[in-house]
Design a protein around this nucleic acid. Sequence first.
DNA 1: TTAAACTCGGATAAATTTGTCCTGTTTAAA
DNA 2: TTTAAACAGGACAAATTTATCCGAGTTTAA
Lengths: 144, 144
Amino acid sequence: MFSRACEYSIRATILIATHSMVGERVSLKDIARKTDSPLAFTGKVLQQLVKGGIVTSVQGVNGGFEIGQKQMEETRLSQIVAAIDGEQIFRACGLGLQACNAKKPCPLHDKFASIRNDLKTMLEGTSILDLSTGLKDGLTFLQR
Amino acid sequence: MFSRACEYSIRATILIATHSMVGERVSLKDIARKTDSPLAFTGKVLQQLVKGGIVTSVQGVNGGFEIGQKQMEETRLSQIVAAIDGEQIFRACGLGLQACNAKKPCPLHDKFASIRNDLKTMLEGTSILDLSTGLKDGLTFLQR
DNA sequence: TTAAACTCGGATAAATTTGTCCTGTTTAAA
DNA sequence: TTTAAACAGGACAAATTTATCCGAGTTTAA
């Protein structure tokens, strides 16, 4: 469904949020370890999120990644997905046809659009905070 | 959502069905042209469908691909997807975590499982015939 | 001022997916 | 029986995604 890069970025962001909730930063090293993600590659995708204004990074000793309280409340999962995988997933035809639309639909158009819209609605309705509270409370997990 | 190979295979199968409805075979050449797919690559994925028993091929002059009436009624889109992309799409965790399940869920588990099940239900409830009739009647399209 | 703990970013490598090419085999018809 | 149309399949090439490596810059604290 999502690319690896996107999966890593979501896992990382959720972890960062649980630390930011208690006023801590997380290093890339810890992120990679606690989300079972390749360190250097995760570093790359996190840079994209920094550029996208979704998380903040601080260099130097005691540096790391963090996300503001307001950011984690307001940022939607859809924004992370869009930042890494692009908007295609929200609009693309299920059969890969460029010209497919409601007026000239592919055979799967209606049925697929329905699912795709449900996905979009779900991603737009889910904040980073929503995903992070369960992890912080030990109700959900990020380990492989 | 689906791989290119899977998109091509679905497009090809739908086209084959519209021809089989009127007792014709379609050549790979025609399939590639009418579904805007790369010929040789589409040939490969069609071989997988032949091996999977979803479509039938006939070699030699006037050969081509076909699908039986019963096959197009009974074969579900889910079977094509499974034959090409595997079952992962129906079971995988949204965040790519191997160990994610209902008892030890990832933060997105419930919301994602819901969408994924809707997709599964849709694919299992859609037959090749369902997709082909609209195309045959000129109500839907396969051209890019 | 030096060392250590960090992120940043370019280069490169590995793996996977996508795509092409070419040769062989089968089949029907001329 | 020859020829041409068609699928089968191996080898290879291109493109994309995933992943690693390394040097450089930044910041804190000893």
